[in-house]
Amino acid sequence: MIIKFKLNGKNVAIEAPGGERLIDLLRERLNLVGTKEGCGKGECGACTVLLDNKPVCSCLILAAQVNGRNVMTIEGVESDARLRAVQEAFVEAGSVQCGFCTPGMILSAAALLRANPKPSRDEIKRALSGNLCRCTGYEKIFDAVELASHKIMKKAASK
């Protein structure tokens, strides 16, 4: 079937075979390799993308299921100010080591800040509990989300 959806702000129409997972469509046919596959079963969050602004695992959703909806991947950082602010905060706070978890972390964090611009440390931890990181020990990732929250609030206040 032909599916139509919005991907990082642009309209896409593409033939999607019934059993194709979203992650396979993104990585293998659309060459958006920022989305990573870790476990392939919903446990690591490396494959996180935003579906209508909410984080989901692209390894657990069929491409056909995003028909008519809005998908944002880490490549959307170019067109989305909130994502960019979170990305910058990750760099500044030193929250990236091998980087495999980073795209998923940034997307989950951006979704959190959209729903809750000033989350507590505990709320940050809970929101990111579906994103595993083998390298950083998480603290610097939580720091980055706090930093991004300050930046976004400051920007909003100065407008």
Binding site: K54, C57, I61, R126
Partner: peptide, 9 residues
């Protein structure tokens, strides 16, 4: 249930 990602689906 699970994580935020799992609860959303």
């Amino acid at each position: 249930v699970g994580s935020w990602q799992i609860r959303n689906r």
